[in-house]
Design a protein around this nucleic acid. Structure first.
Lengths: 353, 353
DNA sequence: CTGTTAGCGCCTTCAG
DNA sequence: CTGAAGGCGCTAACAG
């Protein structure tokens, strides 16, 4: 049976209130007895019981504010789905979640939402930060006011926060590169498409792809890296044009899935491709063998993790070991998403064929 | 704020004790008022607060018994690791876990351990069942005594339990087959190695591999399916001999990793191979490019899930929707396990190459 | 059959 | 600076 504050109180001959003060640096307390209590607690390996704690702090009405962008793409929808899943998990802890959605993709608007969240009494904030000093400063201010901030899917250089939860961008690049190696046997011509380079993560991913391929696949030539417009109807045109101008037999594609699939299918010569993320159209294309694989960057897990980190902190005081939490990626082939029933029937046997 | 029993008590004009009786079918209660309370609870969408509940039932000293085999292979070690992880997560809930290890791989011994667990006061049992009527009957008996049983990594046909947590064997086969398709381009000769066919899951996996390949890769010939001895020093000899007798250029290998890797490396002609599981030697071979990929059947997650299902049930009364819980598999390439630091540095740019 | 009460482990006043 | 008491939501034992 785990050790409790009550037991420590009895052992040290003080009241449970004093133990609480000593262990949580709360209120004024005689340094000597505080020390003694802490020593005993450490010796007995006392761990605060998070179940009891969250029941007790229930009336503090903790509130996590989530400040998101407008973006309604499949990727961010999944992030949000993860947030909602986690919300259910923690509802019994008396922690509530409120989502704030920015109107425009500008720092001023994001700042506005943050301030609104604070006014509404947020005790912690989850944020997909826009890269601007306005936001960086605000975040610093929040941290000083002891309001933990978690960056989600993106982070700011030189701005330290409670935690940042991102995709493992380097790994994400390596997997595409590795699959390309697998697929090509090490020979061929590749075109790479990426979202905006203004985001650090996307640069990291591309760096990983290129440096991996140049090291391990010297006979595989990356002809071009094409930057795609953020959310734009031009996407299809650009992909299509690039494929015409720079013929290739392999593509690594990260961008609007619909545009990419359409352009690649229209190519006069066959192109095998590695995609990113789990948009509906991507999975359909995978099933149809129009694309070879896709890399799931687990947006759902990212959202879930951000909430979970904060709720763990609020209920148990546990901080993540590392500020940067990298959510791992997963290779998805057609076989990952096939219905399994069709393959559960026949009865083959051991032996020669 | 979520609705509480106290609120329901006030609304229905009874005491909180009565609400408890109505909502948990406990003790005797006037059917009419029970009905009224349940109606109100449903209308208000009352959900029992699992945090409060687990704090309250703490003194019942719930105990989950885990009955495992002797087997000390990497796979089962991971299963056990998952169990221990979950144990930490639920320690605050006052649920304890005790592990019983069978001496021999026989039903009688397993039965002995189950009985011992019950004598020790287990309130639930996790079990890797041996396929025998002795065990099937005992399990039935336990279920009748309202002791939930969870099957782990294996299950019994025609024996229904609280839940069975297994690897998704069919998917596991499909992934190997899919990777082979990817790797071979659809042409070549394949040898398949599998653990004992006496376990249903292994048969399912092989069926999936063969039926997939015959459907999608008509020009890829599976020459032979070789059954490997359970835990045996003969493993290496058998693999080695099979490779000599039946030459091939691709291998799908599930069995003792050390033996498989050694035999394949010694082959006079090059063989590309798909392995299973995450044994240390497997990962080293993957890093060294001696094998092409491995399939992680997530044994850790299986162990963790089994414990979690039971603790959720014991603390919140939540039952899994489906009796069969299939833990998904994951493709692991060399690039999944490479250190990422090496690829985080260079600074490539957008454009032609 | 129903209400009351005393916890579970922790946090937060409020007295002293 | 410290102790005592009440409460978080639920369960269980005991009166009535």
């Amino acid at each position: 049976m785990a050790i409790t504050m009550k037991q420590i109180a009895e052992l040290t001959g003080v009241s449970i209130g004093t133990v609480d003060r000593a262990l949580n640096n709360r209120g004024s307390i005689n340094p000597a007895v505080a020390q003694r209590i802490r020593t005993v607690a450490k010796e007995l390996n006392y761990k605060t019981n998070s179940v009891a704690k969250s029941l007790a702090i229930r009336n503090k009405k903790l509130k996590i504010a989530v400040v998101l962008h407008i973006q309604q793409n499949p990727y961010f929808n999944s992030v949000e789905k993860g947030i909602h899943e986690a919300t259910e998990d923690i509802s019994d802890f008396g922690i509530s979640i409120e989502i704030y959605r920015c109107r425009k993709f500008v720092a001023e608007d994001q700042l506005l939402k943050i301030n609104q969240a604070i006014d509404d009494g947020a005790t912690a904030i989850i944020l997909t930060p826009i890269d601007s000093p306005i936001i960086a400063n605000k975040v610093k201010e929040l941290q000083e006011a002891r309001i933990p901030v978690v960056f989600l899917t993106n982070f700011l250089d030189n701005t330290s926060v409670f935690a940042s939860v991102c995709c493992n961008y380097v790994r994400s690049g390596l997997l595409a590169a590795g699959l390309t190696r697998f697929l090509t046997g090490g020979h061929g011509e590749v075109l790479v498409f990426t979202p905006t380079f203004s985001m650090l993560g996307h640069r990291k991913r591309i760096n990983a792809i290129l440096s991996y391929l140049s090291e391990y696949c010297p006979d595989l030539h990356v002809k071009k890296v094409v930057e795609l417009p953020g959310d734009d109807f031009d996407c299809y045109r650009i992909v299509s044009q690039s494929l015409k101008e720079t013929p290739c037999n392999y593509v690594i594609y990260n961008g609007d899935a619909h545009a990419g699939i359409k352009a690649i299918k229209e190519s006069p010569h066959p192109i095998r491709s590695i995609f990113y993320d789990m948009a509906e159209v991507t999975l359909e294309a995978l099933q149809a063998d129009d694309i070879s694989a896709t890399i799931n960057q687990n947006p759902e897990m990212q959202g879930k993790t951000a909430v979970k980190l904060l709720s763990d902190y609020l209920t148990s005081g546990v901080k993540p070991e590392n500020e940067h939490i990298l959510i791992d990626c997963e290779i998805i082939l057609r076989e990952n998403i096939m219905a399994i029933d069709r393959f559960s029937k026949n009865n083959f046997v051991i032996g020669e064929y």
